[in-house]
């Protein structure tokens, strides 16, 4: 069983929801990536999504674009992201790390080389935003062959046919994008999410995480009540932007604890189908 599956199974047994924070590797500076990952765990992260910066982040809003530009300007690269994961893994064997990014840095390294390097560094899964299922049969196959979970998105615009397409190639969990738009937008429609998640969960047979637009304890609690996992990205990047460098890690941990507490008040969790 993969580290990701292990986490969801444990949480289901405890009746709790997964908290999945996102940070951009190399932001606000490469030396802070490891301390920030530690802070996320300290604040209650179950899985970490680590953003691989890309020059053209088409699916991201201004906050994550800024973080990517800042990281790249300081020389962040795929190799250095993997180095950060390796360092994290040497001190934490339990918390899964999912890389989130775009196809080109992977293709530049070569899919096979990347998958092997990611596995060796201790990566658990990959979400490649611009690899929809139809373009990632080879990639997903290579990832699964190396014991890594290829994670896919579903969106409010996705049909039931898409649920099946994604379930056929994906593993680990499904990331449901809770709104039409880019990361960091604010138009979260919780009723829509509540209506869709049970359908998706039944169709894909995997836990379903929800992200895009979750910014505080209240929205996290309401989404957590219907989903298996809550993903928070832009809001954490903003927290880092607003903190003095030497306090960023503490403030991120404190923010995370607020979300964690809210999620843990949900109580009895219904139905992770694993």
């Amino acid at each position: 069983m993969s580290r990701i599956q292990t986490v969801f199974q444990r949480l289901q047994g405890e009746g709790r929801k997964a908290l999945i924070p996102f940070v951009t590797a190399g932001f606000p500076e490469p030396a802070l990536t490891l301390p920030l990952m530690r802070a996320l765990v300290e604040g209650g992260a179950d899985i970490i999504e680590l953003g691989v910066p890309f020059s053209d982040p088409m699916a991201d809003g201004p906050t994550i674009q800024r973080a990517s530009e800042c990281a790249l300007a300081q020389g962040m690269s795929m190799r250095k992201v993997l180095d950060a994961v390796r360092a994290f893994r040497s001190e934490n064997a339990a918390t899964p790390v999912v890389l989130m990014g775009y196809a080109n840095p992977i293709e530049a390294m070569g899919v096979e080389t990347f998958v092997a390097a990611a596995r060796d560094a201790g990566v658990d899964g990959m979400l490649v935003v611009d690899y929809p299922p139809e373009e990632s049969v080879a990639f997903a196959g290579a990832a699964k062959g190396a014991g890594l979970d290829p994670i896919f998105l579903l969106a409010p615009t996705s049909s039931e046919q898409r649920f099946a397409d994604v379930a056929a190639v994906g593993s680990g969990y499904i990331y449901y994008v809770s709104l039409k738009g880019v990361t960091g937008s604010g138009k979260l429609d919780i009723d829509e999410v509540a209506r869709r998640i049970p359908q998706i969960r039944a169709a894909v047979g995997m836990p379903v995480g929800v992200g895009f637009g979750i910014r505080d304890a209240d929205s996290a609690r309401r989404i957590g009540a219907v989903a298996d996992a809550v993903v928070i990205g832009s809001r954490i990047i903003e927290e880092i932007e607003q903190s003095p460098r030497d306090e960023a890690a503490q403030r991120v941990a404190a923010f995370m604890r607020g979300i964690r507490e809210a999620l843990d008040t949900i109580g009895s969790a219904k139905g992770v189908t694993q």
Binding site: S55, M58, A103, I106
Partner: peptide, 22 residues
């Protein structure tokens, strides 16, 4: 350039070693 993925298609791209568009 070298083949890669940008703007929804795979094609020749001007990019650095790391796959960042230059």
């Amino acid at each position: 350039g070298r083949p890669g993925v940008l703007h929804g298609n795979r094609t020749y791209l001007l990019q650095n070693e790391d796959g960042q568009i230059i």
